[in-house]
Nucleic acid binder design. Structure first.
Ligand SMILES: [Mn+2]
Ligand SMILES: [Mn+2]
Ligand SMILES: [Mn+2]
Ligand SMILES: [Mn+2]
Lengths: 241, 241
DNA sequence: CGGTAAATTTAGGTATGCCGAAATTCTGGA
DNA sequence: TCCAGAATTTCGGCATACCTAAATTTACCG
């Protein structure tokens, strides 16, 4: 019964989380990764991030000039993708094999990703049939660290008349996921934008989840969390009498 | 992505391991649990154990007078059994569902036991069909903390002529488990003691693993690691011409 | 009934990773 | 160009859990 918290030589779970978060913050949107964005995402003080960034730089995982945004090195990216792979395979396992709901898996995977062995991950991968995306539509990197992002855009960037299939939903907020599930909106749902109400107003859409189309209005946060793959530009007007 | 290593209010994984180890050291043999036995089992300095024991006492998990052995309180025993349940269910899962060998599961369970949620454990339990023992024959406590030890004794306590069925094998040493597997000795094997050679000599037995009986000599360490349930006292002599 | 060897605890120190407050640097108007 | 406010880093501290070396206590043996 080993008491040692983490094997020396390997990266601590904090290091793993920071590197993974740096990757995640720039996976779907390409804004620079600043200390404060990291601090917010990690629920940690800014000063803690500064200190950790110095350490990550010493470890060769990030490139950083003081007061500037941080960027992963090739090695950092490799570690990040390994962690992302772990996280997403674990989420898939929890849904597929243990019957978790898609809003329950993120937090559990967040801690498991640091403690399961490579062997565990490989066995999981095989048992799940080498899935290519997790329950939220996030692509799962290969063991070699290759990843292919679907050609999707956030719903809030769509104009009137555009239609698309939901490809990915951010799993950051469980409440949001629960809400969508209750509304029967999920991966594969087809959304057609009818109208954008300006000044933060809702995005009015027609939505088809398979059980017939209906209208739905997306608020700001919702529209920013949902990523949609284009299925061509129907004349949105034809649906609006 | 929470960076926090362990949620405040709950017990740290060190606390969990110490308490579980205190329980384990007295589960099968009833020698008093001393600092040095704990230190050896946890691969930690004696002084570290002293410090942690003080902390465990403050937490109400152990009763302890300085320079004396330590004992679990009712609350400590509850925590210990919860950890033991987690550990053994995880081991069972790794063997049953992920195809691990019985010598590979201990170390992985040792770290997972601290990170999976109660929900995870409950789902595992159901999915495994509420198993009553782990791959090494160690009984799995109920969610309420009830545990029933089989009426078994270590092989090294058997006299000539006694016969028994292997019920439990200590999972501390993976090499020992691999050796036994290679020799096709496992849970359920029936062992009849033919002779005890004194002064640390081997324990000579006839063993039946289902594929016909054969002779086998157990060394010291082996005989101390194997626990056997009596199946009556055959005239051992009848087997020895 | 000492007196010593073994077991245990205490003392002093290290490494992580976190925090709040204070100092520093950057940046976008005026 | 300058400068205030924002972002970032530095500083001093805290908590956990470990270690080695130096006390301290216990237990056994003569
Ligand atoms: Mn994590
Ligand atoms: Mn996900
Ligand atoms: Mn453990
Ligand atoms: Mn076991």
């Amino acid at each position: 019964m080993a008491a040692r918290t983490h094997p020396p030589g390997s990266d601590s779970s904090s290091v793993q989380d920071y590197v993974k978060t740096i990757y995640s913050l720039s996976e779907w949107r390409t804004e620079p990764v600043t200390s404060s964005r990291l601090a917010a995402r990690l629920s940690v003080a800014n000063s803690s991030v500064s200190e950790m960034i110095r350490k990550l730089a010493e470890l060769g995982l990030v490139a950083h000039k003081p007061y500037r945004p941080v960027e992963l090195t090739a090695e950092g990216r490799r570690l990040a993708l390994a962690m992302v792979r772990r996280h997403r395979l674990l989420e898939t396992f929890l849904v597929q094999d243990l019957g978790y709901r898609w809003d329950e898996v993120h937090d559990e995977a967040e801690v498991l990703e640091h403690t399961v062995s490579d062997t565990f991950i490989d066995r999981l991968d095989a048992r799940l049939g080498f899935p290519s995306a997790d329950p939220h539509g996030d692509p799962i990197p290969t063991p070699e660290g290759a990843i292919t992002l679907p050609d999707a855009r956030p719903l809030d960037s769509f104009d009137d008349g555009h239609a698309g299939r939901v490809t990915r939903i951010s799993d950051e907020d469980p409440q949001l996921l629960r809400f969508l599930a209750a509304e029967d909106i999920g991966l594969g749902s087809v959304v057609t934008v009818l109208a954008r109400i300006p000044f933060g107003g809702p995005l009015q859409t027609r939505i088809d989840t398979g059980a017939g189309p209906r209208d739905f209005s997306f608020g700001d946060e919702l529209a920013r969390s949902i990523w949609v793959e284009s299925v061509g530009e129907h004349a949105g007007c034809s649906l609006v009498p």
